[in-house]
Design a protein around this nucleic acid. Structure first.
Lengths: 202, 202
DNA sequence: ACCTGAACACCGTTCAAGT
DNA sequence: ACCTGAACACCGTTCAAGT
């Protein structure tokens, strides 16, 4: 009886199980992972250093799904828009995992491809070096905040105790998630990139 | 011997202790809170329903610190800018608490004052109701993302394995936190509001 | 009314022992 | 090389008991 060629455990298998567990329950635990993989919790430590590393591996996995070549030879504002959209989409595939990224370690390594691509786009737009980092940070912050909005439970706006006139009129037009979050992201992204374009070329 | 007039425990006292513990350690636990307050962990449950409620009380406390009347009679774009700045500042006083807000419940109640003020400003700017919610969401997402950037540990950009030319030039200008995060926020906020202004009045 | 003590069902992690 | 079993030091929460 030869050993099975496919191993029972590996970092990739653990990462997949963590993603599935968070998708279905909103969080993951080492015992929960072990149970899904039909293994004892201590076995996991032969493949990952601990829970924190699993979170980082998931982050790296999601970032690796980003296609950095989209519309590579378009005007720079379209490149930034497309990159930000791809960036958020990679988060959006597993929205409930996003809060686990926010008590973060570094993340810079996994995101470096994205940052390089954004830096090139802003440089092409005429941005001086000392503002490129700010522009990248602005896009990064907006994408992460928007991704978190996607993970939010359906907001019970209606129960808002004292909405003023402007707010009440706005609430009357509200759509359910994820359509509302998607529309808000596209709206905000368009405004942000337009504002960044107005500051460029100096 | 009369009882002491100041009680040993109250929701406010627990909230203050949680904030101090997160400021100094990055997280809080019920036993840790109890120890700081010279009390047993089970005593806390006479004043709060549990850990989750403490997080929500802290969120409400921080939001209540926001001054919604800043520059009330300025042009609407300045009102939005000032509100967003105040909003982020209320987070920034205790940056390490911010990640604890991101696995959130509703938050809408605590933020309603801010949302009302933003709604009024956008309405004054000529925004139609169906876009006001998007504009508010964009500001909200950008502020939260920027606040999280503030909680990030000093990023070891330099160790970035393969920065391209544009990125390397940008990194050479990087300042330490919190100055870098502050400058990036102001830069991004200016761009976002400029973009939102360009879409207004339609 | 509110603090305590003891208990419960969990965590993440380590490590010697097996194969 | 990798899985197990047992153990450790923790969690958050409940609840009867005290005062």
């Amino acid at each position: 009886m030869p050993r099975p060629t496919t191993k029972l455990l590996s970092p990739q298998i653990i990462v997949d199980a963590a993603i599935r567990m968070v998708d279905s329950t909103g969080d993951f635990t080492m015992p929960g992972l072990a149970q899904r993989l039909k293994v004892r919790p201590s076995s996991l430590y032969n493949h990952v250093s601990g829970r924190a590393e699993i979170v980082e591996l998931v982050r790296a996995h999601m970032m690796s799904q980003i296609d950095l070549t989209v519309v590579a030879d378009a005007p720079w504002t379209e490149v930034v828009t497309a990159l930000a959209r791809e960036y958020r989409r990679s988060y959006a595939r597993h929205p409930r995992f996003i809060p686990l990224f926010t008590s973060h370690t570094v993340a810079a390594e996994a995101a470096f491809g994205m940052y390089n691509a954004l830096a090139s786009a802003f440089a092409a737009g005429g941005y001086p070096p000392e503002q490129i980092l700010h522009a990248i940070t602005a896009v990064d912050s907006f994408v992460l905040g928007s991704a978190l909005d996607l993970a939010a439970p359906e907001v019970v706006w209606e129960s808002g105790p004292e909405a003023n006139d402007a707010m009440r009129a706005a609430l009357a037009t509200s759509a359910p998630n994820p359509e509302r979050a998607d529309a808000a992201f596209e709206f905000g992204l368009d405004a942000l990139v337009a504002g960044l374009a107005a500051r460029a070329g100096g």
